[in-house]
Computed example of a mutant assay.
Amino acid sequence: MAKKPLLSIILLLTGLLTYAQQPDAAGLKQLKRDQDTLQALSQEIFSGKGDDGRARATDEFIPLLVRTLKTKYSFRFRFDSLKTVSIQYPQDSTFRVFTWALEHENGFYRHFGAIQMNTPDGTLKLFPLFDASDFMTNTDTITNNKSWYGCLYYNIIHRHYFNQEFYTLFGWDANNPRSQKKIIEILTFKNGVPVFGGPYFSFAEDSVPKPVRNRFIIEYKKESTATLNYNKELDMIVFDHLISETNEPGKKYTYVSDMDYEGFKWAAGKWMHVDKIFHDAIPLGKGAPTPLPLDQKKKSMTQPKSAEDYLEQPTPKKPAPKKKQ
């Protein structure tokens, strides 16, 4: 009976060693050379002149990225110089996601991306992501990589439940001249193929229950800032409660934070909505994180994990109560 655990350990160590393989000297040299070209093209996509110039850079960037990733064990190369491309890994490093955005002169955005799987033999297994968000009449749907809700991913949270892996993706969409969006959805793999979305965002515990959602999106004023991220200390997703500053709830571009917070807690394979973080989640003596005002001049797509996310900000200290005279 003792042989089985030992065999399992040997197989596990063998798998870890295989996954830890690095590109050989020639491969590493080629990766570095290609990275320099990709970096220049990515800067052109971000800040090139005119729609045509940025589109041409995109058309050159995509095939070069694919060709570069075909280098054996390229998964181990981090592409750190690609500052305008978000590269996110889950905790188990079974894959990574590349995402980037193309801004049009009219202020609208199109997103591009790809999922690279971490293969044991170092060969390339890649799923290109095709942005279909502009054509989705129903955003609360389950999609695949060929009909992807385009955005820049800035975080991934991994959960395991009943022999299945769940990867919660956090994304930012600069959207249009009047509003921006943040998105959370769960990525799963069915028969090795990515599936985006699913009935994993539940409102069953609300005082007035609402239907389960396949994808959760907040949309708010372009010049405003809103939190939507995972809080490790609370073990919850936390986001700003939004209201229309002009009392026009039908116009999402008027939405701003009212400094209250909602969230989701993981339970039985779903994210369960928590209506008020103040009452239900924050431990005694701990204050709620307060987002700092966002300086639009400093806002940059070179930082997909955007500055307004409160996890990147210090929590302002509450002023001491004034003493009575």
Rank of each mutant, 00 (worst) to 15 (best):
S244F: 07
L294C: 09
L65R: 01
K286F: 04
P304C: 11
R76G: 04
K297A: 15
T58P: 00
Y153V: 15
Y109E: 09
V212A: 09
Q325F: 04
S244N: 15
L6W: 10
D206G: 12
F79P: 12
D275R: 13
F112P: 05
L311N: 09
R78L: 15
K190W: 01
D51P: 02
P304R: 05
Q30W: 02
A268F: 06
P211C: 07
E245I: 07
T143P: 05
F135L: 03
E308P: 11
T143A: 06
D260W: 02
L64R: 07
D92F: 10
Q88H: 06
K222P: 12
K29W: 01
Y89K: 12
A2E: 11
G113H: 13
H241W: 04
M236W: 03
K72M: 09
F170K: 01
E205H: 07
D260N: 10
P209L: 12
P319A: 12
Q325E: 12
G122R: 01
H273E: 09
F79T: 14
K4N: 06
P316T: 09
A268L: 12
S202T: 14
M259S: 09
K252C: 05
E312W: 08
E245V: 04
V97D: 00
A174F: 04
K125N: 09
I186R: 00
F130N: 11
D51R: 05
K297C: 13
V274P: 05
K265G: 12
L6D: 10
T123V: 15
K299E: 12
K72E: 11
V274H: 04
E44I: 12
K32Y: 03
L65P: 01
G27V: 02
D92K: 09
L242I: 10
F216H: 08
L17T: 03
S202C: 15
H160E: 13
E233V: 10
A40C: 06
M136C: 03
K322P: 09
A132W: 11
M301P: 00
S47E: 06
K146L: 12
I277R: 00
T225C: 14
E219D: 03
P316A: 05
K276P: 00
W148E: 10
S42F: 08
P293C: 11
G171Y: 03
G197I: 08
E205M: 13
H241T: 14
N138K: 07
L13D: 00
Y89G: 03
S147D: 11
D280M: 13
S147Q: 12
S81G: 08
A281W: 01
G122W: 02
H160M: 13
K265T: 15
P128M: 13
I186V: 15
M117F: 02
F75N: 03
R178W: 03
T246G: 00
F170N: 02
R213P: 10
L152C: 01
L126E: 08
E219I: 05
A57C: 06
G198L: 09
T141M: 06
F75Y: 13
I62L: 06
D24S: 03
F108K: 10
I237Y: 00
P283Q: 05
Q303G: 05
Y73W: 08
Q180N: 01
D235V: 08
K222E: 14
S224F: 03
Q313R: 11
N155L: 06
Y220P: 15
H111L: 09
P319M: 08
I156G: 00
Q91H: 12
I282W: 02
E262M: 10
I87Q: 06
H160P: 06
I157V: 14
D235L: 04
D140F: 05
G269F: 09
I45E: 03
E60W: 01
